[in-house]
């Protein structure tokens, strides 16, 4: 059975300034234990899709099912309790809330360790636990804390919105490892919004979202060969040599 099923989902924005449809009749299926990558041009509707699954953006038409149960009308909090998590593209900053506190809150009943989760995203707990999540952090640090707040949960479905944005090459390798570990040791369905070829290489399935529609849906080999034919050498991540990532490519 599918873990998550979106049936004919549309999202429209109607307010004083705009009246446009952001997602148009999207139907997708996601299964446990698999990795999905959602890609496509900026403004195509990728983040909206993820927010719609999380309950942050309500859909206007269509339904979403989690393990067969219609969750379309459930709140964000209820969806979280059912095992859906979303790592924001632009993480919120909090004047005063500490990293350790946020992770404790996110942890809930899961048995995962706050300190270890921080180490997994490349942050030293001694240095970060007591710091508040404010302007003193770089964009990359904020992204890693955001990532940690998802990894610490035991999720059925984990959505990551451009997790690689703003992080350096070293952290990027760690990120890949982290996704692989999550995939190997849990049954979590991993959905990653990304433009990175390295991340697409991990995918069981790649979905291209463009102009609010599913433009293409394919198993990875096909799309990667399309990408490869384009201009692989210009892709920034191909510059790493000798590392395990390059080894894994072959």
């Amino acid at each position: 059975m599918n873990l998550l099923e979106m049936k004919n989902v549309s999202v429209d924005i109607k307010d004083d300034v705009s009246d446009k449809s952001i997602l148009k009749d999207v139907s997708l299926e996601f299964q446990s234990g698999k990795i999905y990558v959602i890609t496509g041009p900026n403004g195509g509707g990728k983040s909206t899709l993820a927010k719609c699954i999380m309950g942050i953006m309500p859909q206007n038409t269509g339904e979403i099912y989690l393990a067969g149960e219609d969750i379309s009308k459930l709140s964000i909090v209820e969806r979280s309790k059912k095992g859906i998590g979303y790592a924001f593209q632009a993480p919120a900053k909090f004047k005063g809330l500490k990293v350790g506190r946020l992770l404790e809150l996110a942890k809930g009943d899961s048995g995962n360790s706050v300190a270890q989760t921080l180490r997994d995203v490349g942050l030293d707990p001694d240095e970060y636990l007591e710091r508040s999540i404010d302007n003193s952090f770089s964009g990359g640090e904020l992204k890693r804390i955001e990532l940690a707040s998802i990894l610490i949960q035991d999720l059925k479905l984990a959505l990551f919105d451009e997790p690689e944005a703003g992080i350096d090459l070293w952290s990027f390798k760690l990120l890949i490892k982290t996704f692989k570990r999550l995939n190997r040791f849990t049954d979590t369905c991993i959905v990653i919004i990304s433009h990175q070829e390295r991340i697409m290489e991990m995918a069981d399935e790649i979905v291209v979202i463009d102009k609010g529609k599913v433009a293409q849906k394919t198993v990875k080999n096909k799309l990667l060969s399309i990408l490869n034919n384009k201009d692989l050498n210009k892709c920034e991540m191909t510059c790493c040599e000798g590392g395990e990532l390059c080894g894994e490519r072959n």
Partner: peptide, 26 residues
């Protein structure tokens, strides 16, 4: 965005307000 983030980790809106205020004044 602060409230929404806390709701996505399973915290109700009222609890989230409380947590944010406590952190802010801490």
């Amino acid at each position: 965005d602060q409230l929404t983030k806390l709701m996505t980790i399973g915290i109700t809106e009222e609890e989230a307000e409380d947590i944010i205020i406590k952190g802010f004044l801490d």
